[in-house]
Nucleic acid binder design. Sequence first.
DNA 1: CGGGGTAGCTATACAGCTACCCCGGTGCCGTATT
Length: 483
Amino acid sequence: MKLEEALEKYFGFKKFLPGQAEVIQAVLTRPHVLGVLPTGGGKSLCFQLPGLLLPGLTLVISPLVALMKDQVDGLHARSLYQATYLNSQLPWREYRERLRRLKEGAYKLVYLAPERLRSRAFLEAIRHRPVSLVAVGEAHCVSQWGHDFRPDYLWISRFCRWLPGRPKLLALTATATPAVQEDILAKLEMENPYRVVASSNRPNLFFSVQPVSREGDKLAALQKMLAGERGCGIIYTGTRRDCEFLAKWLRRELRLPVLHYHAGMSPQERTAAQERFAAGEVPLIVATNAFGMGINKEDIRFVIHYTLPGSLEAYYQEVGRAGRDGRPAWSLLLYAPRDRGLQEFLIRQETVTENDARRLSAYIENRRQGDRAILKLEDMAGLDLEETKLRFLLSEMEQRGLIRSVERTPEAIGVLITGTFRREHWQAIARQSQRLAEEKRKKLAVMVDYAAKRQCRRETILRYFGEEKPGPAGPCCDVCQGI
DNA sequence: CGGGGTAGCTATACAGCTACCCCGGTGCCGTATT
């Protein structure tokens, strides 16, 4: 069957979008494929179609449980019932039933979060199913989150090695600088990959930066920008408190209907806000960086940053949510130089020290019974380690062969102690954390440069993404327009 | 690092200032059956 026939048979489309056919052809014929395709370029199809055509199972690694459900619902709507997902949102019985059906070979496509790859029950179920393809969606998460926040992203490669047959690997993302691309390839252990890298340029987006010195100036600038704007938009803030404050202010002072969204809200509140925004019921949402992944809203006309983000790629990802319909859309960064302090704080906060590593080692030794230890999350609160730090430390210890995480419950982590904790390990872990912090500081400096210098914004962004600025095609940015 | 809130002082204004404290982003994750 030709690819176009399969496309029409399964999805009802007559033609591929640019880049799709190339990626799919590569996935079918080569072991490792990296696809950097712009937002709205139909990335899902790049693993869904091969998933249906390849003989074995396709595992789709997805960062958010909400995304899995949407995608699988979409496939079911096309009568593609060989697709499912596994995550902690499922009722126990349903989860067990799906594992059983997985073992029986009922599925072709299974969506999961990287953390699932460490579940014993899952590993047991998958062990005897031939896996043809492991597709990593939103693959920039490997680089962005894998090093510390969600270390299980770094275990995808080990999982692939553990599988009896070596599966194909496909990594897909909309935004990845050359450095991030290399990081993804290295962490997923993808060798001699076939690359499909489309331009990151979004001609219909207008970029602007407004320097402000005081908080009050931000509000004045916002008021000015929002006056007369009738389209949908997102305003990103750096903190939850600002998010709530700003939403209230917009409601009260500007009498605008506004939603807000951050990770401190209940799951129900978050879903409700997201759905109301997506449905166009309320045109404006104020959010932290928790908001946006998997938002398919086409008609977002503007994205405003109330606070400086931590990196240019994070910024461009957020801005890139505007104008998916191809019609003109604008972005504005309100730049107060002191906002850099927040990002610096966040970097410092998650950097672990030798002493942090020593304290955790001591705790594990303390809990040791034979070669095992049960680490209680409640006790570990007394160690004065941030949750992110703790995860990072455990992951680093595991990578150094000191422990193996064998079992997890919401209250505890069971570990097998496989090495001897020594000072050199603590030092090495602290050094690794320092290196990561340095990387983040460099990225922050690039972001600050973008905001502070009067250089063509589009050119600055595209150069960072390893591209030349294309010729003029409509309004570009505040600098080019002389604003 | 910086913003915002508050206590406490001054000393006669019902406000203004300083010193001090606290706070600050992102998300997955188990079980048992056979």
